[in-house]
Design a protein around this nucleic acid. Sequence first.
DNA 1: ATTGGCACTCTGCGAACAGGAGTGCCAAGA
DNA 2: TCTTGGCACTCCTGTTCGCAGAGTGCCAAT
Lengths: 339, 339
Amino acid sequence: MLDDRKLEVLRAIVEDYVSTQEPVGSKALVERHNLGVSPATIRNDMAALEEEGYIAQPHTSAGRVPTDKGYRLFVDRLSTVKPLSSPERRAIQTFLEGAADLDDVVLRTVKLLAQLTRQVAVVQYPSLSRSSVRHVEVVKLAHTRLLLVLITDTGRVEQRVVELPGPVSDAAVADLRATLNAHMNDRPLADAGALILALPQQADSAEDRSVMTAVVASMLETLVERFEDRIVLAGTANLTRSAYDFPFTLRPVLEALEEQVTLLKLFGEAVDPSRVSVRIGEENPEGLTTTAVVSTAYGAQSRPLAGLAVLGPTRMDYPGAIGAVGAVARYVGQILAEG
Amino acid sequence: MLDDRKLEVLRAIVEDYVSTQEPVGSKALVERHNLGVSPATIRNDMAALEEEGYIAQPHTSAGRVPTDKGYRLFVDRLSTVKPLSSPERRAIQTFLEGAADLDDVVLRTVKLLAQLTRQVAVVQYPSLSRSSVRHVEVVKLAHTRLLLVLITDTGRVEQRVVELPGPVSDAAVADLRATLNAHMNDRPLADAGALILALPQQADSAEDRSVMTAVVASMLETLVERFEDRIVLAGTANLTRSAYDFPFTLRPVLEALEEQVTLLKLFGEAVDPSRVSVRIGEENPEGLTTTAVVSTAYGAQSRPLAGLAVLGPTRMDYPGAIGAVGAVARYVGQILAEG
DNA sequence: ATTGGCACTCTGCGAACAGGAGTGCCAAGA
DNA sequence: TCTTGGCACTCCTGTTCGCAGAGTGCCAAT
C-alpha cells in the first residue's frame, strides 16, 4: 500500500511543513527535494497518503499538512535522530559541569534544553523514592520537636520538622540517630517507612522508641511523597513562537503547565534512559492534545532517577528534539553519578 | 483645570473600559452613569482630559481609552479600595490555615491570589536576610564534610553541605554547634556572617575552630544570597484572557516572568506591609511596560518579610486587585507570625 | 506506472461601498 | 460662562465583488 516513494513523500511533507509552517503542495515538493518524478505523480501519492490518514488538507485546494498519525509514522520509521554538533556537545558539558549543587544542575539543565530546542523544557528532580539514603540526621529542637534531615546519594537534601506526641530524652534521640544510620545507609528510600517500623525495639527505652519510630516513619513517607513531584519549567515564552493560531491553543497548555499532576504524566512511560519517548497530539493527557512531548529518563540504565522532557507544537523538529533530549539526559546522568 | 465632573468622567471611562475592554464614547457614558448632563458636555470634558494626556483615542472617531497617566490619576485619587466580601475573607482564612508548612503556605497564597484577581500572581519566599535564626544545626557527615542546617523564625529550613579543607574532631563540631546556637539565636540572619567571624576563639582547639568558623560563615552567606530570591508564580494562563493584541505583548511578559532578576524588581519599593504599591505601564522594568503591577510586602509592619504581587494588563481592576493583594498579605503575615 | 494538460475550487487581497459610531465645532439658550 | 442640540466630518467595520494564484483531481496519452 505504502511503497518507498510514498514514505519518502510523507517525510518530505513533514520536513517542509515543520520548517515553513505552511501547507505544502506537490509542486513545491518536487522543487525542494529531488524526487525524480513530476508533480502529478506526487499528487497521486499524496491522495493515497490522505486516504490512509497520514496527511490532510486544511481546505480544498490548499497544500497538505501531516496529521498526528503522519507524525507518528515519521517519528517511528522515517527519521533518524539528529546528533548534536560537537561544539554543542562541548557547550553542554562545560555548562553543566559548572553547576554548584543539585538545584543548580536541574536549573541549568532545564534552561539548556529550552534553549537547544527552542521549546518548553520540563525537568523533574531526581526522585526521592528511587534514590537511596546516604545519611539521616535527627536533631532535637525542643522537648517535643525533632528535625529530620535526609541526604540522598543524588545530592538531594530534604528536611522536615516533626512534632512528637510527648517529650523524649536526649539519649533516645541519639540512639535513634545511630540506629537509623546503621540500618538505612544505602537502602532505597522507597523502603524507608517499612524498614524503620521493622527496626528492633530496645528494652531500655521502649516507650520513647516506639513512638518516635512510628512518627519518623510516617514523616519520611510524607516527605518522599510530597517532594516526589518537584518539577522545573523553562522556555514558556517559546510557546508564542508557534503563535498564529493562538490564544485558543495556548490557554489550555499554560493551564496544564501549572498543574503538577498533568506534568507528572508527561514522564509516565519514560523510565528507560536509553529510550526517548515521543507522544503526539491526542496521545497526550488532557490540555496537551495539541502538543507533542519528547521525553526520557535520566540516571543510570539500571536505576533511572527522574524524567526530562521537551514540549511544543506537534509541528516540531522531532529529530532535533530527540537528539537534544537524549544528549542532555546522558550528560545529566553522568554529572549526577560523579557528584 | 480639572473640576470634579471631569474627574468623575475619567473615573467612569476607566471603569467602563476595564469592564468592557472597548473604547468608550460620550453617549455610552451618560447612559451608563447618571451624570446629569448631555453627551455634548461630556465631549467637552473628554477633550479637556485628552488635552491633559489622561485619555487618548485609538483613532479619530473612536471612543476614548485611558492612558498610563489616566490610570495613575485614577489609582491615586479616584478609586477606593474594594474590600473583599466576607465569604471571600472566610475562604481565604480557612484556605491558608490549612497549610502544612512554609512551602505550602507560599504555594496556597500564590494560587489564591491568582484566582481572586484572575491575573498572574507572584509571591516571594520570606527573605532569609530579614529573618532571624531559630536554630542552627551542625552535623558531621564525614571527616571533612559538615552538614549545616538553618531554621528561621518564619519556618524556612535551608541546608548546605560544607567541605572543609582538613579533618576536624567530633568535639570541635559539638563545640561549634553549641557556640553557634548560644550566640545566634534570635539574631537576624543578615548579620550571621560577621557575627560568626567575631566569635571568641577558644585556646584548646584554635586550629580547628578558626578554619571551621571561616568556612561556616562563608557558607551561611552564600546560602542567604542564593535563596534570597525564591519566587513562585501562578495564573500565567490568565494572560491569555487579555489576548486580543497577542502574541506581541505576551512574549516579553513570559520572558520577563522567567527572569528572577526582573521579578525581584517588582518588589523593589514594596517594603511596607501597610501600603500597596501600584506600578503602571512605563513605570515598570523592561519587558513589563505594557502591564501593571500591584504589589506589597507581607509580615509585621516593623519587620517585612518579603513581597507579593499581582501582574496584569494596565487595563486592570485596580480597586479589586489592591483589595485582594492587601488582604492576602495581611492574612499571610498573620499565619506566619503564628506558625 | 507516469506524465502533461486542463478545469475546478478555494484562499487571499484589494477596491468599492454602506452603515455606524463617535467626535469637534458652532450657534443658541440658561 | 457653562450647557446643549444640531450637524458635518472622520474613520472603523463589515460586505461584496472581482481577480490572481496556488493547488488539486481527473483524464487521456505515453
